[in-house]
Design a protein around this nucleic acid. Structure first.
Lengths: 347, 347
DNA sequence: CTTTAGCACTCATCTCTATCGAGTGCTAAA
DNA sequence: TTTAGCACTCGATAGAGATGAGTGCTAAAG
């Protein structure tokens, strides 16, 4: 997919991309000549421009403007030209320090990670919590709230905690709740959603077992919905950065993007489509199948415990995104979360 | 604070406010004459304009433009002129129906409520979860994740569920965890943060009790932080509506507001300042002490179980907000949540 | 004292025009 | 293949009217 370009074309394309990312205005042949001595004249650059435009790497907004990279141009840049550096060590340390200052709470980690990512990449950040592909029962707890209501807390193997209120048809005491939860804890131990469902279907509940039946049903439902796409919680931050980008001065575009960012389900679909199994994935403009993101780029990475609980995180910004920095930021935060998760859940 | 105005001044002010809210453009004397027959000429209206301007209810953007309500004008409108209607019954039913379709889960309720509020009031919505002023212990559960890690789940009297990971310095079995949690459940039963802390301070833990000591400490910490302001989770929705408002075509303003809306802690401060104990509170423009919201209005309402768990919800939009509709929407959603919460937690 | 017609005045907005200049594409020579 | 030269394009910027909505004031009428 990525052809070969002559050395000089590469150099020129690289300059255009970098310059455009930095200044947000079309890059002219003179600019390149003066600011970057390439040893050739502006006319030569223009000839190259013409060819690069022909080949689809560059485009010009109007007949008499400089050149701007196309999605294909950015793609070539990301693939071949971009120098990938790590985040500066000082920054790494600062971030790591922040993580060690907060308590061992997944929710807090996610918030912090989203904030850090947004700040570091100066764009909107997205994080989908790591989640096992298969739900596996670990523990259930029933807590009496009032005579007629109770709280069910379900913990799955991936340490996700699910809670749900229950309304009873007749008064139920805490002892009864404890009895049922104890029983179910043994019955469902380590079961996946299928197994649990099988048990429920195989059991004939008498009228006395109404509570047990209800709780079992709820557990199976929760496990199934946990396995379904579209239920992962998503953390976001840095939406304001979007509005700072000159490509979004026309409010209408900004609104489109913000709309996507605000809607949980679209975002879930986008993130779960990402093929982030191995390392970082960059999605540039129209490469995405979502029309609303035609002007945007995504830098995504998977993280979590391979095979056990996979999460996705990344940043979203205009196509004119500082890819180098974004990639380093995303990679660092992903590896940091990997560390933290491993320390907690890994053996 | 709210003076009396002559009938005619009231009528004129009302027209200006309504017309400006509807059209977003300054209202001229002719417009009023033609569109609303008041039986007087434009010149008379102009005289009244002049006085209303003098009194601070109206202002003009430029010397030769129509009039626009000031914050004081809106205030008068909200206080005296606005006809408060309930939400149309069909809408009420639709909303209620949506709530009954989802499961009994506070998180889901909050999400839905935020979505409904945003859609109904066509503006950004905010919801702070109901939370007891005093944390009161209800239940703790310790679940082994691996040999060296565990999950602590703490349930408080207001049914809030808090989780935290724990890392042990030496392997701990589930039996030991259960033993400790059982003990603490008895020891802390119904205690508030102070009492729990007192117990912890009064106890001398031997080396064998390291786990118990650690867990107790964590519980006290969690309870204290639960009582502190600034830890309430906030649900938001409809941020895009902000960008639809003509007052925010200049991106810079939109960014300021979005910044506030995105930052949890500022928002928490704003919401917790609101005096929403009894009914609806409308904060108009500069009445708010937050400079960033000088151009915005808030319509807030308290909800929850009085004295037990108080939440705040409301909408945020430009000063030029359809107050009538916003108030009805906020009031309806608040009462709906009250119903739901009562049914669950009330006796 | 209040209302109103009349009128001059203000000022944002729109349109038209001219100018500017960055940047191009092409041609012909090196 | 490279480069100097040059005409050309076209967006951006600025100024000049023209427009018109809306005002404030005055003086007369009710």
């Amino acid at each position: 997919m990525v052809e070969d370009l002559t050395e000089r074309k590469q150099a020129i394309l690289g300059i255009v991309v970098r310059e455009y990312i930095a200044t947000a205005r079309p890059v002219g042949s003179d600019t390149i000549c003066q600011r970057y001595g390439l040893g050739v004249s502006a006319a030569t650059i223009r000839n190259e421009f013409a060819e690069l435009t022909e080949m689809g790497y560059l485009m010009q907004p109007h007949t008499s403007a400089g050149r701007v990279p196309t999605a294909k141009g950015y793609r070539y840049f990301v693939e071949k030209l971009m120098e990938e550096s790590d985040l500066p060590l000082s920054e790494q340390l600062m971030i790591r320090h922040q993580f060690h200052q907060i308590s061992l709470d997944l929710d807090q980690w996610m918030r912090l990670a989203a904030a850090v990512l947004a700040r570091t990449a100066q764009s909107a950040s997205l994080i989908a919590v790591p989640q096992a592909r298969q739900a596996r029962f670990r523990h259930v707890e029933l807590i009496s709230i009032s005579e007629l209501t109770g709280l069910m807390i379900l913990v799955l193997q991936d340490s996700s905690v699910h809670q749900q209120m229950m309304v009873f048809s007749k008064p139920v005491a805490q002892e009864e709740l404890s009895r049922v939860s104890n029983k179910l804890n043994q019955q469902f131990a380590n079961f996946d959603a299928h197994q649990a469902q099988a048990v429920v279907q195989a059991t004939t509940y008498t009228e006395q077992d109404a509570l047990e039946a209800e709780v079992s049903k709820r557990i199976v439902e929760l496990m199934q919905s946990h396995e379904a796409q579209g239920t992962r919680e998503i953390y976001r931050d840095g939406l304001v950065h979007i509005l700072r980008q000159p490509e979004f001065i026309e409010i209408e575009r900004a609104r489109q993007v913000l709309q996507v960012l605000e809607q949980d389900n679209t975002l879930q679909a986008i993130l779960s489509e990402a093929q982030v199994s191995n390392g970082i994935q960059v999605i540039i403009g129209n490469e995405s199948k979502w029309a609303e993101l035609r002007d945007c780029s995504l830098v995504l990475s998977g993280y979590g415990l391979p095979g056990e609980a996979n999460g996705v995180l990344g940043v979203l910004g205009p196509m004119r995104m500082p890819y180098g920095r974004a990639v380093s930021a995303v990679r660092y935060v992903a590896s940091l979360l990997n560390d933290l998760l491993h320390r907690l859940y890994g053996e």
